[in-house]
Amino acid sequence: MSHALRVVAAEALKQHRRLFGQPLVLFSMLLWPLLTLAATYYTVLPVMESATASQRWPVAADPRRLLAFLAAGALAYTFFFSLVQSAWHFSFERVSGTLEALFLSPANRMALVIGNGAAALTQNAWLFGCFAVAAATAADVLDVAHPGMYVVAALALVVPAVAWGAFLNSLLIFSRDSAFLYTLLDDPLWFVAGVRLPLFALPVWIKAVGVAFPLTSSLVVLRGALLDRADLGDLAGALGWLVVLTVGLFLAASALLRLGEARVQRTGNLQVF
């Protein structure tokens, strides 16, 4: 166990060096999401102002609540997308030759991909995280049933995100075309996960696809706990499903790593999937 923690610490150093103080983090993890958030808000505003909108969706009636709804979506999406980005970077280790050095070491492979994802998440998302907390406090939009729900919301955001990162790391490190996966997980991800729309507005088949992504349920919990005064009972379904997904992602990551490494050991070729 302590060896695994040391691996995580090592990965944290790597991500710190890669990301800390990089202007790209400031732009891609704060500025662009905020500009996009504003554009999204104005784009859907005409619809929300229609006479019937607030009957179908009470949030539509109050621009501040609408903005908070969209901002929560942007925050969670930024968390999850930062892991897509870091997995994409991780896949370059194959090209640069350091992946081989990792496989040479006795480090637990799972600890490596988890550590890598967790470290990337902290390096990437702390800025937007702090900003979101400050903005939410200042705008006074939070509506929380009891203080414990802050913890629930934070865990529901971070733990599945780390599992998601571990899964993506395991997938992209062996994949032939990581650029394609990267594109696939950018815009389509926010669309199916209900980042910019309440889930009820999505057609059933899109919802079905979205349910498979932890971002969708993380977002349900985040919005419910922080904006809608939901308590554990209200969120039990989403939380339960989130646990299932998280465990599933960890298991999938572990299977991918095992299969991938076995395949590499057989063929000597690092591109597997």
Partner: peptide, 16 residues
């Protein structure tokens, strides 16, 4: 991106 010292520390951690 890492310095020589950090590289060695990194791999030292991996090797426990």
């Amino acid at each position: 991106r890492l310095t020589a010292r950090e590289n060695l520390w990194y791999f030292g951690q991996l090797y426990d």
